[in-house]
Design a protein around this nucleic acid. Structure first.
Lengths: 343, 343
DNA sequence: CTGTTAGCGCATTCAC
DNA sequence: GTGAATGCGCTAACAG
């Protein structure tokens, strides 16, 4: 009699032996709907418990050709909008047994490409992306992968597959119009320089369109560094804005975070908000609801974007499993300008 | 001649055939250090390109017994402290080729247990957790898995494996002492009710210890609902605090977010901060650095916690691959009380 | 530097 | 309701 070999992790065969059944029966007992008698199942579960067995899904994936997970890629975790979208996806797929693999790009399409490739190596059954801008290679990889794709937060001109989002340009344009209605006539914009943040660039575009069509003075744009957008940047930017164009009476910031930073800096300098200058943000972050003064913003239901994207990818995945393919769908999530005390 | 079967995704065998080599050579060419002649490699890469081939790591995992990823579990994505820790982990493992699978628990140990089990099914090579409190079953699963584990953000009394963190109680205690030195004598605490947020509970404990040893009036604690901690909760809480104990001259909040909410509410009510009441937070979130007034807080290097945890898990994983095992290590990350304008 | 053989742990498919 | 044979796509180990 030789000593039991020091096996690292028990396998299904170990469980089967212990329960006195075949591995196939164990496999069945582990999935719902597995046709196994109550007695056998109990013995199997007991064996699993005793052995501390954990199913190796990796092996299951190989033979069933279902990895059981989907991947989601966001620009940054440190942005509650995207964190909410990720939560929405999780909520939508929770019941289905699918898991989500989450990655982030730091707003760099090159990182996104690497990440997509890395994820594809693990054979996700679906993929949710943020934005509509990707490297050509990333796009090619996605198309070749033949899995459902959902792009979120933008309405891409040429979607890869499905899309769930809204026009950032239109939203920002609506905000400027609202400020105009409130009597503001010298409206500036504060945002990032780079086009890394395509949603930020779209918002700036919407701003420019609005001042153009309203006949307001143009070019009152202060740009700060790369994303992620920070509160500090907003503070610096508004100082530049007021220094450069002292007649500016309202500023639209690319996000609530920079709007908040701008307002805090105004407090420090004794510039009344909105008395001396009005400040609006974008995104309806918690800080905008809670700050003093509360910040006018464009609210987008980030969670809902995630939920819809999650449901869409889920349906597409279930369709694909059943051999059906779904027509590409573009879902528009409404935005809403919320006027608060800062304007 | 039959038509080529409609294969979904090309496999390594397809690449091999096209390049006129064996699959083994393709496999080698795909890893660095694979001993393959330049010419062969070029042919293989060309074939990969033409076919749009993507390696199936799932199959590789099965035969090599290396999944190539580690898992990290945080309470919430929507908290920049944890998002930073996740970033730190990513940074630490980036070069190694390991990937990170990220999950979150919504501050519920039951969800954590489910998540750990789900992740273990995919055979991570290591696991980074937040906090030291887990269900007994979760702990058992982890121990049975036989992979390196790092617990972060706390110093657990009985660590599962490695730990990277600090004493939340000691940090909060230090903050109260600092307020005492500044002359505050009626110090309150604002935090969550439930013990779901164990770090929050530890901070409250540290507060209680401090007022005890300083001989200050006790029990001035306002509790609000479940985590995640919101700014709104801080605003409500400070009103209750001032109503219930009008003599309170300083409040310690369980996080900067609630501190910020408290301060904003004070602004609204015309209570000067710190003139009428001083407010301190915890965590050194961006909002604390940027708000007006800037918020006194306890700074913890969240990113560094992640980096250290990442390096630790990386060394442990590489050790395990080489057949070595590492002695459990507990790493203390220093915290620092940062006094700012709010006290 | 390259190929062959074998097998990772499970689910599919078919048989009983 | 249960079992046996087979193969998923890749890599370890060895041979050449």
């Amino acid at each position: 009699m030789s000593a039991p070999p020091p096996r690292s992790t028990p396998t299904m065969a170990d469980v089967a032996k212990r329960a006195g059944v075949s591995t196939m029966t164990v496999s069945r007992a582990l999935r719902d709907g597995g046709m196994v008698s109550g007695d056998t199942r109990a013995r199997i579960l007991a064996a699993i418990e005793e052995l501390g067995y954990v199913l190796d899904q990796t092996a299951g994936t190989l033979s069933s050709k279902r990895s059981g997970f989907m991947a989601a890629i966001v620009p940054s975790l440190n942005n509650s909008n995207f964190a909410d979208t990720a939560r929405g996806i999780t909520e939508a797929i929770e019941e289905s047994g699918l898991q989500m693999l989450l990655g982030y790009t730091d707003y760099q399409v090159e990182k996104e490409e690497k990440l997509i490739e890395a994820m594809l190596r693990r054979r996700p059954e679906g993929l949710v992306l943020t934005g509509g801008r990707h490297t050509p290679r990333a796009r090619k990889l996605l198309e070749a992968a033949g899995i459902p794709v959902v792009e979120t937060w933008d309405i891409p001109p040429d979607p890869i597959g499905h899309a769930v989002g809204f026009s950032n340009a239109a939203a920002c344009r609506a905000l400027v119009h609202r400020l105009y209605e409130r009597g503001y006539r010298n409206i500036g914009f504060v945002g990032g320089t780079s086009n890394r943040d395509t949603r930020g660039a779209d918002r700036r575009l919407g701003y420019s369109e609005a001042v153009e069509e309203l006949g307001l003075p143009r070019g009152r744009i202060i740009s700060f560094g790369k994303p992620p957008i920070s509160m500090e940047q907003g503070g610096e930017a508004i100082v530049h804005m007021v220094t450069q164009w002292p007649d500016v009476d309202a500023v639209v910031c690319v996000s609530d975070l920079s709007a908040f930073g701008a307002i805090a800096e105004c407090h420090r300098r004794g510039w009344a908000v909105p008395g001396r200058i009005a400040v609006a943000g974008f995104g309806d972050f918690e800080v905008a609801r809670c700050a003093f003064p509360r910040i006018t913003t464009v609210a987008v239901d980030s969670l809902e974007i995630g939920r819809q994207a999650g449901e869409l990818i889920l349906r597409a995945i279930e369709g694909a499993r059943a051999g059906r393919s779904m027509p590409a769908e573009t879902m528009i999530i409404p935005f809403k300008v919320i006027e608060r005390e800062s304007t």
